[in-house]
Simulated assay, not measured.
Amino acid sequence: MTYTTHPTADELFDISDDRLRERASLKWSNVDVDVLPAWVAEMDVHLAPAIIDALQNAITRHDAGYPGSAEGVTQAFSDFARDRWNWNIEPDQVSIHVDAATAAAKLMRHYAGADRSVMIMPPVYNRFYDWLDVGGVRPVEVPLTDVPNGGYFDLDGIEAGLKAGTKVILLCNPHNPLGRVFSRQELSELAELAERYDAVVLSDEIHAPLVYHGVEYSPWLTVSEAAANTGIAIHTATKSWNFAGLKCGIAIRSTTGPWPDDLDPKTSLTDSGFWGILATEAAFSQSRDWLDTVREHFEAQTGRLTQLLAEHLPEVKFHPPEASFLAWLDFGDTDLREEPSEYFLREARVALNPGTRFGAAGEGYARLNMGTSAQRLERIIKAMGKAWPPAA
């Protein structure tokens, strides 16, 4: 693609089905050729020019060794956090890891209490269950309340779990799959409980760069003194700039909060993906215009999806997200009596994520990926509409 100085969303997402099927990454390569994929969290988008340049320059230099320094990526992330979220981070508070999953698994393994439990709040990011397995810990589920209207913390349930001995809370904010951005007040109440019961909060904030305009996002470590005392934040650029296959996770701790002495930032840097570090630095430092265009596109996609569902699937409920490109579709009040994703794969040739992959609280739901062009989103919903209503 030949980019304009400031490419539009139509330009960035203008990729044909045939070109997308040439990709070897998961979203398009793992479905049949007649299926429209709207499942795994990959975007159908052209990479940001600065990221392409960083990777091409590394190839030109034949530069594919171990990471040599974290200084550039640490500075790029710190500058982004200051400019976008008013979050001031000192370099020694940041460490680079293979990815968010690896960092979280190590931290959960270290801080889980005698019962080896970690609290999660389903429906929640399906890979959390994998992270828990790798960390050798078990989930304690405290489902979010009022999910059809966005989803809220069950503070009584959280306190009961902490009182019973759970010592780690794995938080997802912005939330996947609901797209919910929890308020500072909600996070502050959670932090007070964590501090009261001497628990550690691992805050997965990887969708934070894609929070919509006008929505207040509060990084965990900025919420309150209690949050800073109890938390570790985990970030990446890989979701927001669409290079999940290039590994680079970022963990941030506060000067007063937890951090394992045996988790050496020098070792975790060497274990990380060199090209992922290069791409991450280019993302945070040189690809903000690209990000803003993509973010505005997803805000518009949310409006489009609302209209398309009303026209083609009016019985399906959808609470508009406040961040990112994922939609949580509620089939609970419809006549559909089977797993929604299985139904639409068979009848509409559209691939969705099963709601039950996000915990038992996801029964009757499906996750839809809006990270595509406006035209393809319309094709997806129209195909689903043609298969609706299900036969009696």
Rank of each mutant, 00 (worst) to 15 (best):
I15W: 03
L20D: 00
R23F: 15
V31E: 03
D32V: 10
V35F: 09
W39M: 08
V40I: 12
L47E: 05
A54W: 02
L55F: 00
L55C: 10
Q56G: 03
A58V: 02
I59Q: 09
T60W: 03
E71K: 11
Q75G: 04
A76T: 05
D79P: 12
N88F: 11
D92H: 08
Q93L: 13
Q93P: 15
V98W: 06
D99T: 09
A101S: 11
A101V: 14
A104F: 03
M108R: 00
Y111L: 11
Y111A: 12
Y111T: 14
M119I: 15
V124F: 15
Y125L: 14
Y129N: 09
D133W: 14
V134Y: 15
G136S: 01
V142H: 02
A160C: 09
T166N: 11
P177L: 00
R180E: 02
R184S: 13
E192V: 15
D198E: 11
V201M: 07
A208G: 08
P209D: 01
V211G: 12
V211S: 00
V215I: 10
Y217K: 12
W220I: 09
S224T: 11
G231A: 09
G231H: 00
K239Q: 07
L246H: 03
I250A: 00
T256E: 07
S268T: 11
L269Y: 04
T270I: 13
G273A: 05
T280N: 04
A282Q: 01
F284D: 04
R288T: 07
D289C: 13
L291D: 04
R295L: 12
G303P: 08
G303W: 02
L305D: 01
T306N: 06
S324L: 02
A327Y: 06
T334D: 05
P340W: 08
S341Y: 12
Y343W: 06
R346D: 05
P354Q: 10
F358Q: 12
G362R: 01
G364L: 12
Y365D: 05
G371V: 04
A383H: 04
M384W: 03
P389E: 00
